[in-house]
Design a protein around this nucleic acid. Structure first.
Lengths: 206, 206, 206, 206
DNA sequence: AATGAATGAGCGTTCATTCAT
DNA sequence: CATGAATGAACGCTCATTCAT
């Protein structure tokens, strides 16, 4: 009657699969990475993996959910000690600027990109992806922007929804191109320039 | 032994394959489109297609070469009657702004995106893609920027290489997100805003 | 070491499994119904089910035994108040004629059919199925026929073994075709006609 | 431009696959026989088989079409020299009676039976099977019966559609039970008895 | 040059059964 | 006796590429 294995055990198994999958996806891309690859990496059997996840796609979805959750928890945690909207936005940008440089993040970006693209043709996951995009990513930045407006930090003559979209579009563009092109990409300059431009759109001029 | 079929014949066959492939890739994506799809569309046999192209990838590469060539020929042609660098850049942006809205271009963007991403993992085509990126795309904008600098239209305190990169990064980001998200994406505002920002970086203030 | 759980408990558990299995088999067919389906329906665990039954096949076998036992108990019970062989046969036919029309029985027929067919290729269960066929089904009708002969109700010029076989062959054919074809099958006419024919074979003419 | 291989070559390949499939299906049943089994038997590769057939199901469907076609061609051919409806029906019954005894036909019956049963749960093939049942099997017998009515050979007080259905129901029942039970089944007596009964339903009494 | 039949490794997924706890 | 996580062989099917004609 009591569970045979602890909840913790199961959580760890799932984590193991997700970690292994992430490595595999990063290495070969989502499509090219096989369930067998994930088995080999995790040391688990095929059947076991399918006990924890419904499909290969499901692994990706949950992987992204986990990552997104961790990301935004990290930001929210940090924001407890940050009072201005300006600093929050700076923190966000700084985080992306710094993490983008790691090899792991570059691989992750490629996987995300691959999935993001495939989204447009796969009806079933499209809504999941778009919902997360709108309700997590866009909303998060929009709230900072609105806070800054209310604060008096930011101007009032911009549509925070549009600027939030623009924010992520630029981040997407930068991360993607950097992930593909690599060190030849003038990453730092582009990032700095973009930050400056975004702030010039929203900050009140002195 | 003279060739049995004329050079022109062969060029036309190749063109037919490329056109068919383009439609197939746009419809289903590069990975999901099959050689059989291309056969069906072109009315040619598999063997025939492999006479003209080494691999499926090769079809894509040559397709992109052709498209890129046509694109920039179009721009160069147009530039014959455009004298200022500012107007050239405006023309470039306007072209992308307008074409991006077409369904066909959105599908094409997805295919390019798919391939651009996969580039990072496939050694063989990586150099081809990067070479084109640098020597065609970046260079083209860079030359306009440098011309503007020389002209006195633009400021001198920016790195035209960086701004050219930034230019395409933003275009990439916008086209990609728009292609995936669709009509919910505030395409026009983002595009206009981006244009304004780019010009604010390079134009001399009055 | 006395048993930890009562015999009654075990009987009930078994019954629960058999009932759940019956519903699952009827719904999806024997092959397509999974042990997990049966778990879900019964609320029991996989391990538990395998404590009571050796294999999935074993579940079917015991299920059929139970059903057959109940069937013939029902008939025997009813026969206590029926004196003539003619009426017994009529009762038997009437029961099948009426029950065949229910959706549940149609699904059951499909499962039996599926298993009956597979019987011919599976050595292990073949003898079980054939034994039941001969010693229960055929014998039951044969005894009625012999009783009728002894009674003077029926003629003596038929082989009761053959007629019993014929009886079930026709019932099989009718139930099966009706179960597959559905409402387009002229069920009533076929059944009535068949009854008439069988009786014309065995009844003494006036 | 001309086909690389002759039409005849392709027809033979298809025939080879169908023959191999039939043997595999007969040996193991449709579900349990694998495409690999068919490959092994035919000496062809998996891909090749899928060049000729869309799915495993498709192999079965075409196999049955071919068999049905051959069957009824055989009957129609024979009927050219048979003038009375009575004799036609007798020929039909005789053919089944004789062929049923062969091991090959028994196996075939099992495969047909398996598929016939599965029909009820598979929407996609249901219509194909039922259409063939009604428009080929039932119609064929019905036409003989109507011919006999018109001839004056048969009575007029029966519904030829119902009797045709009854005809095949009995044939189905007999073939199936015989295929499963084997030599213990009193095949000849059952068949003779059934023939007599059917004719007693339709023949005018002297 | 054109054809298209042949190939076969490879894929994601299923599921009856086992067995450590 | 109960549990349910683990197993892994097996399946139908795909598709880029080859090559005999």
């Amino acid at each position: 009657m009591p569970p045979i294995v602890s909840e913790e055990y199961k959580v760890n198994r799932k984590k193991l699969i997700l970690e292994s999958a992430l490595k595999c996806f990063a290495e070969k891309g989502f499509e090219l990475a096989t369930i067998d690859d994930i088995c080999a990496r995790s040391g688990m059997s095929k059947g076991s993996i399918y006990n924890y996840f419904k499909t290969k796609e499901d692994i990706y979805i949950q992987l992204m959910n986990e990552q997104t959750r961790e990301n935004f928890e990290y930001f929210k945690e940090a924001f407890l000690t940050i009072t201005t909207a300006t600093e929050k936005l700076q923190f966000l940008l700084k985080t992306y600027r710094e993490v983008s440089l790691t090899e792991a993040f570059k691989n992750l970006t490629l996987v995300h990109g691959e999935f993001w693209l495939s989204t447009s043709r796969k009806k079933e996951i499209r809504s999941i992806m778009l919902e997360r995009y709108q309700n997590v990513y866009i909303r998060f930045v929009k709230e900072i922007l609105d806070e800054g407006k209310a604060n008096g930090e930011f101007k009032h003559d911009f549509d925070s929804s549009v600027i939030a979209t623009l924010f992520w579009t630029y981040i997407d563009g930068i991360c993607l191109d950097y992930a593909v092109i690599g060190n030849e990409y003038p990453y730092c300059e582009i990032f700095r320039q973009t930050e400056a431009m975004i702030f010039s759109l929203i900050l009140k001029r002195d």
